[in-house]
């Protein structure tokens, strides 16, 4: 996993509430057995017409936002299906961070496992950032995960909260499986204690 320390990038505003993972990556693109190839289909229902041509009214098709790496969205981002393909698609498209008032639980974990930083901010602040991105593109933000700050070039500066452990993993790009495997002895002891419970019928 690529570590996340500091990131400066362009902001794309997509201020809808309840953006579900079916929108982030529609099901017709889930049939791959690879982890890559999903970026091209990110938000495909919104990004493209039925015939595959781009919809010019969609934010990520507009000049100033095409190479955005920070997405600003409405509350409950990532709700619905558990598909990690949503996190893969966002990362592959180039997003490193999302700013929204809240996120769905499973998406939060999936993002963490793919080095995608989720920043939770009060709704008025999210709105303000989205407005800046809308009115003076390309609007850039610098996110410093070590200092837990977001700043722009016009004097905007805010701190954000992030769980200590999640921050630690992101900063160092740590593989969760490797970390758990260090606990092998604890897992085996646990299994020994619960042996009868784990027995099955036929």
């Amino acid at each position: 996993m690529e570590p996340f320390r500091q990131h400066r990038g362009t902001v794309a505003p997509l201020l809808r509430e309840n953006i579900d993972t079916d929108q982030i990556i529609p099901k017709q693109h889930l049939k791959s057995i690879e982890r890559t190839g999903f970026g091209a289909h990110l938000f495909s229902g919104w990004r493209f017409h039925g015939d595959g041509t781009p919809r010019h009214d969609f934010v990520l098709n507009q000049e100033h936002y095409r190479s955005a790496s920070i997405l600003v969205a409405g509350k409950n981002f990532g709700c619905g299906s558990s598909r990690e393909h949503a996190a893969w698609a966002l990362s592959e498209f180039g997003f490193r961070a999302i700013i929204a008032p809240s996120y769905a639980d499973i998406f939060r974990t999936n993002a963490g496992n793919n080095g995608l930083l989720l920043i939770e901010m009060e709704e008025p602040l999210v709105r303000r950032i989205a407005e800046q991105a809308q009115t003076k593109p390309p609007y850039e933000l610098t996110i410093d995960l070590e200092a837990q700050t977001i700043t722009d070039d016009f004097g905007f500066s805010e701190t954000f909260a992030v769980e200590t452990f999640r921050r630690h993993r992101l900063l160092h790009g740590l593989d969760e499986i490797g970390m758990t495997l260090l606990r092998e002895a604890d897992i085996s002891r646990f299994e020994e204690r619960r042996r009868t419970f784990l027995q099955r019928g036929t």
Partner: peptide
Amino acid sequence: GIGTSEVEH
């Protein structure tokens, strides 16, 4: 429900 990285985990 869990994501694919967690399935692997």
